Computed example of a mutant assay.
Amino acid sequence: MSKVKYYYDSETLSYRKIERKKRRTFKFAAMFILAAALFGFLFVFIASQYVESPKERALKRELANMQLQYQLLNKKMDEAQTVLSSIEDRDNNIYRLYFEANPIPEEQRKAGFGGVNRYKNLEGFDNSKLIIESNKRIDILQKQIVVQSKSLDEIAELAKEKEKLLAAIPAIQPVRNEDLTRMASGYGTRIDPFTKARKMHWGMDFTAPRGTPIYATGDGVVIRADNRSTGYGNHIRIDHGYGYVSLYAHLYKYNVRKNQKVKRGDLIGFVGSTGRSEAPHLHYEVFKDEQRINPINFYYGSLTAEEFNELLEHASMENQSLD
């Protein structure tokens, strides 16, 4: 039951009942509702600023997890970049240098991507800058890996070719040291055994008994095994490729035929004294690009340092050749 309120009327000196007008009642009600709404809005606003909802907490956890994943991704990219940089350094300064290939320029290894905007579809998001930078870094890293991969493919091919070259170079002595009687004459001006005049001796003479084995000094193909070359008698020529040809003259007999493939160390013939020869020996020559060169520089594959020095000393003497 509502309370009845009175007020004191000083004119009539009596208490009069307060009559509340409906309009005023409506006004008070409206003010109350407005005040309640304002208070509620203020409460919700303050709560939204300082009190997190479950959804907001979930989104914050998701954002924190994404930031952690981004940091881990960056760390992995840093590690990958460090490893790749080390490989690039070895590639330029060791591998490519060893195989006589030009180093890959730094600007080619780390070049970006010009032209159209490759990341337009990633724009317009809250973290677009972060996402775009990460994608750029990954793309550049992938490009560096592709460049390095192609370089290593090239190095692998060069290594195969280098291996063939090293096997082909005439790099051993054609007659074993234990089979030699002596090193008769070397490359250079020598006394001709028949005319006694000084003339150029284009090879090395290895004195050994008739029938002593002669070995191929490098991998190659026999291009001649005949006696149709003036002065050489029975002789063999092996084409090693890369401009190298070796010649073995004054043989007693052959152990190979024309067009036969041989490997370094294969038995190809036997020491004799055919052709223009004074005594049983092997006359050995090496050609590079059709020019005769000193064979003394090609015995690193079969002689020790001491044996090579001894051979060099004997080969340097200006004595009489045997052919």
Rank of each mutant, 00 (worst) to 15 (best):
H235G: 01
A30P: 03
F28G: 03
Y70F: 08
K143Y: 10
I132T: 09
E278P: 00
R118E: 04
D289S: 11
R257V: 13
R176K: 15
M1C: 08
Y299D: 03
V262E: 01
G114S: 15
N117F: 06
Y98C: 03
T274M: 05
T217P: 06
Q71V: 07
N259V: 02
D266W: 10
S151P: 02
Y242T: 05
M77L: 15
V51R: 09
R182Y: 09
S86E: 14
N117I: 05
Y252K: 12
A36R: 01
A249E: 11
A171F: 05
F39P: 01
D266G: 10
L247H: 03
T25H: 09
L152F: 15
Q108E: 13
M77C: 04
T195H: 04
L42H: 06
E62P: 00
G112D: 08
K199M: 08
N135L: 11
I191T: 08
P103Y: 06
F43I: 09
N92T: 04
G218F: 03
R198K: 15
D192F: 03
F43Y: 15
P103F: 09
Y248P: 01
R57E: 14
I155K: 03
N227S: 15
K22T: 10
F99W: 14
I104Q: 06
E154P: 01
Y6P: 05
Q67G: 07
N227C: 04
R16H: 14
D179F: 10
Y8I: 02
A37S: 13
Y98W: 12
R24H: 13
I140M: 09
E79V: 07
K150F: 08
R176Y: 04
I214R: 05
K136F: 03
A168R: 02
N259D: 15
A216F: 02
G188Q: 04
K164D: 11
K60W: 00
T25D: 14
F26R: 12
N319C: 03
P280N: 09
Y232C: 00
S86P: 01
E19K: 14
T274Y: 04
K129E: 15
P295G: 02
M66F: 10
D91G: 05
Q148Y: 05
K110Y: 13
Y50H: 13
N255M: 00
F308M: 15
K129N: 14
Y242R: 05
A30M: 11
Y50M: 06
Q69D: 15
A36F: 14
A36Y: 11
I132S: 04
E157A: 12
R190I: 00
A30T: 13
D91A: 12
E178M: 05
F287S: 06
D192T: 04
K110N: 13
L247I: 14
E285P: 00
R90T: 11
T207G: 10
Q81V: 04
E11A: 13
R292G: 01
V222D: 05
A279C: 07
K288R: 10
L165W: 09
D205R: 01
L34N: 08
I104L: 12
L130N: 07
K136Y: 08
H283I: 03
T189I: 10
A249H: 06
T82V: 10
V51P: 00
